[in-house]
C-alpha cells in the first residue's frame, strides 16, 4: 500500500471529470441519432446556454461542498429568485439601469451570503439547516416585493443574454470566464489551498494557521453572489423573473458538483467537471424528451444516469 506506483498510475487514470464529459457526448450523439444528425448546432447552442446557469451556481456550490461534510448551500434557489425579481423590478426595463441593476443583484447575493454565514457562525446552526431556513426568508422577501408582477428586462440586456459571440452564446462566454477564474482560484491561489485544507481536516487547518472562519465566510458569500448573478442573468434571459425560477437549481447545483467528480466528503474538487455535469444535466433531459419519454420516466432515468456516472467516477479507487 505504501509503495504503489501511484505517480505512474495517475498519468493513465482518467481525470475525475472525464465521465461527465463522456456521458454528455453520448447523450448528445444519442439525441442526434434520433433526428438523423439534424439540429446538432441548435442542440449544442441550447445546451451551452442552459448549462451556463447550472455551471455558475454549481461553481458556487462546489466551493461550499469543498468545505467538507455538512457544508452545502441550500439557499441558492431563493437567492437567485430574490436577486432576479429585485433587479428586474428596479431596472423596470430602463436600459440605463442595467449596470446599477447588476450591482443590486450582486449586493443581494452579498447580503444573503453574509446572512447565511452569520447564522452558521453566531447561532451555530448546521449549514444545511441555516441555508435552508434562510432560503424561506429570501423566498418570502421575493414574494413580498414581487406581488406577481412580471416586468420585462431592458431590451439591450435581453438581447445580450440571448445573443451570441461568433457562434458561442454570450452566457456561455460568461460561464466559461467564471469557470476559468474559479479554476485558477481553486488550483493556484492561497484561498484554493485553504478551502481544500478546511475540507480535509478543519482542526488541522486551524492549527496550521489557516484563518478558517474567514475561509468559510468568503466561501458562503461567493456561493450566494454567484447565485444572485445567475438569477439576474436567468431573469433577463427568460424575459422576466418568476417566483419559481430557482427551484430546479437546488438539485442541479449539487448534482453537477457530484457528477463532475468533486468529492462529496470535501477537500477535493475540480472545476471542469462542473461544466461537464451541467452539460450532461441538460443533454440527458433533452435526449429523454426527444425519445418521447413522459415526465415520470424522465425523472427516473435522470436519477439512474446520475447514479451510474457517480459510481463510474468513484470506481477508480477513490473511496467516497
Amino acid at each position: 500500500m505504501a509503495k504503489s506506483p501511484l505517480p505512474a498510475m495517475l498519468g493513465i487514470v482518467t481525470r475525475p471529470w472525464f465521465w461527465a464529459f463522456a456521458a454528455s457526448a453520448l447523450a448528445f450523439i444519442a439525441t442526434l441519432y434520433l433526428s438523423d444528425g439534424r439540429g446538432g448546432g441548435e442542440l449544442l447552442a441550447a445546451a451551452l446556454t442552459f448549462a451556463s446557469f447550472s455551471a455558475i451556481v454549481g461553481i458556487g456550490q462546489m466551493f461550499v461542498i469543498t468545505l467538507g461534510p455538512g457544508n452545502v448551500d441550500l439557499s441558492i434557489p431563493a437567492t437567485m429568485t430574490l436577486a432576479g425579481t429585485l433587479a428586474l423590478k428596479f431596472m423596470g426595463g430602463e436600459t440605463g439601469l442595467i449596470v446599477p441593476g447588476l450591482l443590486l443583484a450582486l449586493a443581494v447575493g452579498l447580503g444573503a451570503g453574509i446572512f447565511n454565514y452569520l447564522l452558521i457562525r453566531l447561532l451555530r446552526i448546521p449549514p444545511i439547516i441555516a441555508t435552508l431556513s434562510a432560503s424561506f426568508l429570501y423566498q418570502s422577501l421575493a414574494i413580498w416585493w414581487n406581488r406577481g408582477l412580471r416586468i420585462k428586462p431592458p431590451e439591450v440586456l435581453a438581447d445580450f443574454t440571448t445573443g451570441a459571440l461568433i457562434g458561442i452564446p454570450n452566457l456561455t462566454v460568461i460561464g466559461i470566464l467564471i469557470a476559468v477564474v474559479s479554476w485558477v482560484v481553486l488550483e493556484r491561489s492561497l484561498f484554493g489551498r485553504w478551502i481544500s485544507a478546511f475540507g480535509q481536516n478543519t482542526r488541522a487547518a486551524r492549527l496550521s494557521g489557516v484563518p478558517v472562519e474567514a475561509v468559510r465566510a468568503i466561501t458562503y458569500v461567493s456561493s450566494a453572489v454567484l447565485a444572485a448573478f445567475t438569477g439576474y442573468l436567468l431573469a433577463s434571459f427568460s424575459g422576466g423573473a418568476a417566483l419559481n425560477m430557482g427551484t430546479e437549481y437546488l438539485l442541479i447545483s449539487i448534482a453537477v458538483v457530484v457528477i463532475g467528480g468533486s468529492s462529496i466528503a470535501g477537500g477535493n474538487s475540480n472545476v471542469p467537471g462542473i461544466w461537464g455535469g451541467a452539460l450532461l444535466m441538460f443533454l440527458v433531459v433533452s435526449m429523454l424528451n426527444s425519445y418521447g419519454f413522459g415526465a415520470g420516466v424522465r425523472l427516473i432515468m435522470t436519477g439512474t444516469i446520475i447514479i451510474a456516472i457517480v459510481a463510474a467516477a468513484s470506481g477508480k479507487g477513490r473511496s467516497a
Binding site: L190, R193, S196, A197, Q200, N201, R203, A204, A205, L207, S208, G209, V210, G267, N268
Partner: peptide
Amino acid sequence: GRDGVMPLWSILRNLTLTHLP
C-alpha cells in the same frame, strides 16, 4: 490524524501549508 495531516495532499503541500501565505 486529528491535528496535522491533510490526507489527500502530497508531502510538499502538507509541508508548506503554514508558510504558504
